[in-house]
Every structure is written in C-alpha cells, then in structure tokens.
Simulated scan of single mutants.
Amino acid sequence: MNKLFNTKNIIKLLAVLFITITAISCQRDGSVAEDDIPQEELTNIVLLVKEDVPGAVEQKYNYSIGAGGQPTIPLTDGKSYIVQAKFYNGNEDVTQEIKDAKDEHFIIFDFPKSTINITRQDDSSSTGKLGKVGLITKWNVVKVVNSSAPFLKFDLIHAPQSANSAQNGTAWGSVVGGETDAEATFNLSN
C-alpha cells in the first residue's frame, strides 16, 4: 500500500492530470477537427473597399491579428461603398474555407460611433443556413463621425445556433451562441 502512495507515484499522477487538463482546456467546445479555421490560423483580416461608382479604385485595409495598430478607412458621408472581407493565414488566402463552411459562419459589423447602413450582398457561395455570411457588403454611409474616434468592430462568429442580419443597436447582425473565430477593429474617418 505504501508503494501506491509514494512521492514518485503522486508526482507522476499530478503530471498526467496537469497535461490532460491543459490539453482539454485548449480546445473549443467540440474537437479541434470540427473547427474549419481555428483562431490560431487566422493572422489577417483584409477589407477591400471601393466606392460604388463605375471605375472606382479598390483600396485594401489590412488588420493584423495580435500585432496592434488599426488601419483607418476613409469614408464620405452620403456615399456608398462595396466592401469585401478576406481572411489570411500568413500569405495564404483562407476565405474559401469560410465559404466552404458557410453554414457555420456569420460576420457582425458594429459601428458604435457612426451611422452606416449595411446590406449583405453575398452570392450563393457564401450564403448558408444562417443566411448571408457577410463576405460582400454594401455600406451606405449616412454619417461617419457621430462622435470622436469612430471605428468598426468586426467579428467573425463560428457555429452560432442562429443569426440575424438586421440592425441590432449599432451593430449589423446578431447571433445566439457560437464563438468568435476572429475580430478586428478598423478606425473610420472622413
């Protein structure tokens, strides 16, 4: 009996418990294999913004996850813009993986200090059981600067139970359940 409870056996048991708890706590609710794009694999969120007029030039705004700094998107009151969201892992464009899992993703656009109306323009490649993911949107800018330091809070949600694209307070889109796959903040100016 003393051999069972000696110091070496207790230390081994504690080490096994620690490793097991650590491995389990690093996973989401389901297994890692269930998540098509684990958070750790997204390094950049890029918004391609183009005024909604013929011949407009597309501008690229790159938010680097975890690197600090926020790109500033200049917008003009009374104008409309077509905005495309892209996701990267390093130099690799992984947006197709989100399209492939369109039934499990939804983007929320929150403009807490601006008045910007959003229309989701996703085609069938990014429209699933939750509705249009939000990879392509049209922004109708009413007023960019309602108060100081306007910004966009952008959230890619994974596996919500339900999603609604309607405006909810200052955000366009809301979900029940799910987890945040990626989030970004873009400053806005005019």
Rank of each mutant, 00 (worst) to 15 (best):
A184Y: 07
S124M: 10
I73F: 02
G131N: 09
P112D: 06
K50I: 00
E51Q: 05
Q161S: 14
I116Q: 05
T127K: 10
A159G: 02
V53F: 00
V46C: 01
F87W: 06
N89K: 15
V176T: 15
Y88V: 08
A67H: 01
S124Y: 07
G177H: 13
R120A: 11
G173L: 11
V176P: 00
N91P: 04
G177R: 13
V46F: 00
V83S: 11
F109N: 11
S124F: 10
T95L: 07
K138L: 12
P160F: 07
I118Q: 06
N168F: 13
L75G: 00
K79F: 04
G173Y: 05
K79A: 12
N164E: 12
V57S: 12
K132L: 06
Y81A: 09
E104S: 14
D181E: 13
L42V: 14
D110G: 06
P54E: 14
D77T: 03
F109T: 10
I98A: 14
E58H: 02
N89D: 15
T127D: 09
K143Q: 14
T72H: 00
S114P: 04
I98V: 15
Q167G: 00
G178I: 02
G128W: 06
L75M: 07
S147N: 09
D103P: 03
N187M: 09
V144A: 14
T95I: 02
Q167H: 00
I136V: 15
A166R: 11
Y88L: 11
P54S: 12
F106R: 08
N91M: 09
T127E: 11
I82D: 09
I108M: 05
S80L: 02
G90N: 10
I82Y: 01
P71R: 03
I157Q: 11
Y81N: 04
Q167I: 05
L135E: 09
F154V: 02
G66Y: 01
S148C: 01
K60Y: 00
A159S: 15
D155P: 00
N164V: 09
K153H: 05
I118E: 08
W172Q: 07
N168R: 09
K86T: 11
K86L: 15
D52E: 13
P71D: 06
I136S: 13
Y63H: 11
T43I: 03
F186G: 04
F106K: 06
Q59W: 00
S126Y: 08
W172G: 04
S124E: 14
K129H: 01
F154D: 03
K79M: 06
V46G: 01
G90W: 10
A184G: 15
G68T: 03
V53S: 08
F87M: 08
K99L: 07
F109L: 12
N91V: 13
Q84N: 12
G78W: 03
N140L: 10
L75V: 01
D103W: 03
A166S: 15
W172Y: 14
L75Q: 01
S174R: 10
A184R: 09
A67N: 06
D77H: 02
S162T: 14
P112C: 05
V94E: 13
S114M: 02
K138T: 09
F109W: 15
K138F: 04
E104F: 07
L42P: 00
I98D: 12
